[in-house]
């Protein structure tokens, strides 16, 4: 890589790390930072444009403060991203390790199942699951976690298959090391970098799916402050209140952008190390 590009990449990496850390702080400290309660309605002040006193980013159709709702929306977003990725990783670990260690028949059966999940458009699958189990963020998180678990299962399986042929794993097995120890000491630490990269990218995917479902009305339910839900309502006021559609989208876009960038650059760095 040329030097100028290298510097540029480093700056981008720094910016996205700072952004994501900032977002985490905002999500945790939202009640202290937000000017008002995100659910507080103020009908006389509805559709105040951005910059009106007391409404930094304007107010919505119920006179709720858009800025406060975006800050609290960071909570929903990070909660969904975090929980669904942990769930996907959990399922992926169980399936991937089993497939990698249990032999050919189990391996083929599990991977066939994982491929079937992957062979369906994600958003549609999530909508279907949510339609059966009910609308709301908990259902959305579960659906996303299950749907994205094959992404982890595949990586973990491939890594397990490769690692179990390595001399250090073979000799540990020959010495009679218990399987649990082999997994925790020899397998997991060696596949950790790839898992971390996949986590970062999956958070971005999860955010987009959550926002899409909330936008379609089957995700977060009112009055939960969620960026996708805010855009859903904004669609009805394109003429009167265009700012309603601007800021929540910007919040989703920049968060996904930073997650993707972080994942890509981490992946690139790891590849160069090898």
């Amino acid at each position: 890589m040329r030097r100028r590009t290298e510097i540029f990449v480093r700056i981008l990496l720094g910016v996205s790390v700072v952004y994501l850390m900032g977002l985490l702080v905002v999500a945790i400290a939202a009640p202290h930072i937000a000017p008002t309660d995100p659910r507080l309605q103020n009908i006389p002040a509805r559709f105040s444009p951005p910059g009106t006193a007391g409404f930094l980013l304007g107010s919505d159709e119920f006179g709720r403060d858009v800025f406060s709702r975006i800050l609290f929306g960071a909570r929903s977003a990070l909660l969904v991203g975090g929980v669904s990725v942990i769930l996907a990783l959990g399922i992926g670990l169980v399936v991937g390790l089993t497939a990698g260690l249990a032999g050919k028949a189990v391996d083929s059966a599990l991977m066939l199942l994982m491929d079937a999940v992957l062979s369906f458009p994600t958003v549609l699958l999530a909508i279907t699951v949510v339609s059966v189990f009910g609308y709301g963020l908990p259902q959305v998180m579960t659906a996303i976690g299950v749907i994205f678990s094959p992404l982890f299962a595949r990586i973990i399986r491939t890594e397990t298959l490769a690692l179990k042929q390595e001399p250090f794993v073979l000799s540990a097995r020959a010495l009679g090391t218990p399987l649990r120890r082999i997994i925790t000491v020899h397998l997991l630490p060696n596949m950790l970098p790839k898992i971390v990269v996949q986590c970062t990218v999956t958070v971005a995917l999860a955010l987009v799916v959550e926002a899409s479902l909330s936008f379609l009305g089957v995700g977060a339910q009112p009055p939960t402050p969620s960026w996708g839900l805010m855009l859903r309502n904004a669609r009805n006021y394109l003429f009167d209140a265009p700012w309603l559609a601007l800021y929540p989208g910007l919040a989703i876009g920049s968060t996904v952008f930073c997650c993707n960038l972080l994942g890509d650059l981490l992946g690139e760095l790891l590849q160069r190390d090898q």
Partner: peptide, 20 residues
């Protein structure tokens, strides 16, 4: 990167706001 980060429904709304 930008194309992947911008959710399609937001892009749709932005296009509607600008062009329509």
């Amino acid at each position: 990167q930008v194309g992947m980060a911008v959710p399609s429904f937001w892009l749709a709304i932005l296009l509607l706001m600008l062009f329509s």
